[in-house]
Write a protein that binds this DNA or RNA. Structure first.
Ligand SMILES: [Mn+2]
Ligand SMILES: [Mn+2]
Ligand SMILES: [Zn+2]
Ligand SMILES: [Zn+2]
Lengths: 136, 136
DNA sequence: AATAAGAATAGTAATCATTATTAATTTTAT
DNA sequence: ATAAAATTAATAATGATTACTATTCTTATT
């Protein structure tokens, strides 16, 4: 059968990182992944998580979402969708906006940017952070 | 006349940083501002630029735009508009999308996020970076 | 103008997320 | 079995940003 899917990747840790990203809605940080997989691989190092995330990025198997709140977040869902990002805590939630194809194309012409697979993120404030009056 | 506009801020450097941001379409980085104002204030230090940018942010006189490419960028245009951001070099260009008010509200209800003054950025690839084959 | 109190600064050190290095280990190919 | 290639843990380095501090500049008060 499909040998392409049979391709054996000799890095079981990389496999698990990708798998973890594919089976969560969390849009995790590198630390989250590290803490999670340390139970599975007690000798895991944070550098390995970062290095493999970078490899997966280069292979275009995942994407990054930057937030005003420190840590980068990662997503293995490559389907066309957008993100709401909390500018205080960095939490990311998937959303779906129907993007007008033609107006996107107009944007490309106007700006000179290629928006082939545009990453759109809307930053706001999540409920937790809104209610958190610890420091407004 | 309007005394509110007469309020004298005793930090001439802070004033110039804000002024610079208000009179450029560049969405500059801290470094850009530093290099620019060093001609005017030869003793300027980069720390002062960062500190004043943070103060202006706290005062909500400017906003930050994060990019995949290292440096943060700043914008003193607080009118409702959006940004296209190059994921390679970080260049930022203003755009205007007419956001459906009601669908934004629906997003708020669905996600629990408050999107009162949402910052929307679309990441793509600018023309320069697209043509730059130095390292694809 | 002299003086004191507060604000801002330059210069420098510290922080923190991420990336690079390296020597050792593991996997694959021969 | 052996050699080449890939991966790793541990650690050091990087780079953007922030914090600290002693000094200088502003403003208010005499
Ligand atoms: Mn997602
Ligand atoms: Mn703008
Ligand atoms: Zn939040
Ligand atoms: Zn670019």
């Amino acid at each position: 059968m499909k040998t392409v899917n049979m391709k054996r990747n000799h890095s079981i840790k990389r496999d698990r990182i990708l798998e973890l990203l594919q089976t969560t809605l969390e849009h995790p940080t590198a630390d989250w992944i590290y803490e999670r997989l340390k139970k599975e691989f007690p000798d895991l190092s944070l550098g390995t998580v970062y290095r493999n995330l970078r490899i997966l990025l280069d292979e275009k198997k995942i994407i990054t979402i930057r937030s005003a709140a420190g840590h980068d977040r990662f997503d293995a869902d490559l389907s066309s969708h957008q993100h709401v990002v909390c500018e205080k805590c960095g939490k990311v939630v998937d959303i779906l906006m129907n993007l007008d194809k033609s107006s996107l194309h107009r944007l490309e012409e106007k700006t000179g940017f290629s928006l082939a697979s545009p990453r759109i993120s809307i930053s706001g404030l999540c409920r937790d952070c809104r209610l958190d009056k610890s420091e407004s």
